[in-house]
Design a protein around this nucleic acid. Sequence first.
RNA 1: CGGGCUGUAGUAUAGCGGUAGUAUACGUGCUUUGGGAGCAUGCGGUCUGGGUUCGACUCCCAGCAGCCCGACCA
Length: 417
Amino acid sequence: MRQSHLFTKTRKEAPKDEVAKNADLLIRAGFIHKEMAGVYSYLPLGLRVMNKIVGIIREEMNAIGGQELALTALQDRAVWEKTNRWSDAVVDNWFKTQLKNGTDLGLGFTHEEPLTALMTEYIRSYRDLPVYAYQFQTKFRNEARAKSGIMRGREFLMKDLYSFSLDEKAHAAFYEKAKQAYVNVFRRVGLGDTTYVTFASGGSFSKYSHEFQTVTAAGEDVIYVDEKKGIAVNKEVMTDEVLADLGLSRDSLVEKKAVEVGNIFSLGTRFSDALGLSYLDETGAKRPVVMGSYGIGPGRVMGTIVETLSDEKGIVWPESVAPFQVHVVSVAGKDGAPQRAAETLYNRLVSSGIEVLYDDRDLRAGEKFADADLIGIPLRVIVSDKSLEKGGYEIKDRRTGTTSVLAEKELLSRLGL
RNA sequence: CGGGCUGUAGUAUAGCGGUAGUAUACGUGCUUUGGGAGCAUGCGGUCUGGGUUCGACUCCCAGCAGCCCGACCA
């Protein structure tokens, strides 16, 4: 992608109505656009990052047997009444609307009900189980107060997987696999060192649920971390009884603010009972399906990466989610030699399948560097008279700031070519 | 949802009861080219509706929108 053609430009001024660092940087760097409070559009750069995150999650979900589908955002009132979750007195953040004929509809804030109802048409026998279905879907939640930029919006993408298992034992085995898949996801997106499996309230069907909490001052949750064991407890369930149960000691816990980037929990038979999802076992006996649900908000992950990995100059993307792998920056020089060399390099890399953002704009070097820092692509290749005299390209690591000069061959080999 | 604050150009900000200013961005020309360059010139604005007033961007009321604190986040 030539930066001269890239839709969206950086801006110097911070938006006046954003306090959250994630929204400030993402707007200034041109990744997102704010439509209204708590509602953000994803622009080309932002969508690239979002798609990288989605891709990683998809791989991990497929690896544990997940099958991707796409349910509807429009929801049938009747289905939700069966689980007593239609009433505004029970669920206060519904967005509701109507058909022309007056029929009530809701805009989905989660999908246990419709998917469970759907499964009743396909699950009849123990032979039909288990099923692990997931989707990436826009959820709508009418939050009383939007805040924290893209970390807590009214409309946001969510990966939600629902497991349908034969019994508690089969469910528990899958639950552990899902937990490990989540650990993999957060490691791969660059949040592994700061994300803790956190024990949280389990609801009526299990003792605990597990949250994946990333430590950051921008978080809204308070967790107690046992750094040696690498696990944490949410403040909401922090009691002596729980600590004893988990084998944790108050002395080894450190209080931290954190953001919930993922959450998995067991649902038991709450939804299958309410919606009539059952199967016949080998003996012909009717038994309820045991369910679990597993969520990750890719947008929140993106915001959390910005919150935790950016520096005073801008965003620092991990390689795995960066909008481009390489940022080629040409610096104007004698007779246009650097520009010609940069063009050649750009074409060479693109034809080899490398994702390159090429800053071909006719601007001063300082402005290009400042933009590059703000956008945050991890590997920068500067092509200038200076670098050409030294026999190659100047490589700058966005995270560490270290530079080195590499000959073309070395650069290509570093990129796996 | 309770409390508070704020709406001025694409963006960020001054100011005043009497023709709205600056920076940046954008257009044009020239110079410049390794950390957000300079000169010249041009384009562009008072959230909406009422009220007070000879006159309202300014004061008052309502609406709408945004932000902050709290509650909420199943």
